[in-house]
């Protein structure tokens, strides 16, 4: 029996699907059986971010209406063993699925996998409720911005009213240079406001765009920057004690030296 974890944020565009793709891949790379579920029906994205869009034949909607079995609808990731995607239908909308149907599917996936990661749509409506219906745990993704933190607070309240009490926070796209200048909330500020457990801080990393362009989660190609942070988050999900590094801004000299050694800005080795 595995764990069902919903990844949610309230606000759109904070990097939920990228988190799901990378953390899912990281867990699979450490020999865990993982199913990632795109719950964003009508606006599916996860297949594209993972580079699996050309291989999607059936979706969760086909499983619900009986035109496919769950097993057949799962798209296997060929780059890493034990990683499967259940895609969302692009032609339907969120109200075509009932929370119980989503729940049944996730519970079936839970029997066969160590982790079921459900990528929730933005918003607080039925799509979110569907995504959260089978989850016992949640990862709330926010960026260090006023609107994203506000929405994260709202979603934390809603998760609690859905009886989900293990809620961990991911602060995504933290820019250490801006934090040092006092132009961005740091992780302490965000925690002070949201007061939930922090499971990871992901530094802003320009390589993410390239990896999305290619449809290959960054974690395949990199061990540093955002990829390093995603790997550490996956280790913490597995219960390992991995400290959260402080992202410092190097001086010009250190940055030059770091470049020679192939490190990225804002990273502590």
């Amino acid at each position: 029996m595995g764990r069902v974890i919903v990844i949610t944020s309230g606000k759109g565009g904070v990097g939920k699907s990228t988190c799901v793709a990378n953390i899912g891949t990281a867990l699979a790379l450490s020999n865990k059986k993982v199913a990632v579920v795109d719950a964003d029906i009508g606006l599916r994205n996860l297949d594209v971010i993972m580079g699996l869009e050309s291989r999607v034949v059936y979706t969760s909607m086909d499983v619900i209406d009986g035109s496919s079995t769950l097993e057949r609808a799962l798209v296997k990731d060929r780059r890493v063993e034990n990683l499967k995607l259940l895609a969302a239908s692009q032609r339907n909308n969120k109200n075509d699925v009932e929370p119980e149907q989503m729940r049944d599917m996730c519970l079936k996936l839970k029997e066969e996998n160590d982790y079921v990661l459900v990528d929730s749509p933005a918003g607080i409506e039925q799509g979110f409720r569907n995504a959260a219906s089978a989850a016992e745990e949640a990862l709330v993704v926010t960026t260090p911005e006023v609107s994203a933190v506000r929405d994260a607070d709202r979603i934390i309240g809603l998760l609690q009213s859905e009886e989900i009490h293990k809620i961990d926070l991911i602060i995504n796209r933290l820019n250490p240079t801006m934090v040092a200048k006092g132009d961005m909330l740091d992780s302490e500020d965000v925690l002070d406001i949201l007061s939930i457990n922090l499971i990871g801080v992901v530094p802003e990393d320009s390589n993410i765009v390239g990896s999305t362009n290619r449809g290959q989660p960054l974690i395949h190609d990199s061990k540093t920057g955002a990829a390093g942070a995603y790997r550490r988050i996956s280790e913490r999900i597995e219960g390992k004690e991995v400290p959260i590094p402080e992202f410092k801004v190097d001086g010009t000299f250190a940055r030059f030296w770091g470049k020679l050694l192939g490190k990225r800005d804002g990273e502590i080795s």
Binding site: D183, L185, D186
Partner: peptide
């Protein structure tokens, strides 16, 4: 002087917004 760190403004605004939201 860095008297106007925008993150401090962001934080105090957020605190107030959340008081209202909650």
């Amino acid at each position: 002087t860095r008297a106007d760190k925008s993150k401090d403004i962001a934080k105090s605004r957020l605190k107030l917004i959340l008081v209202q939201d909650r």
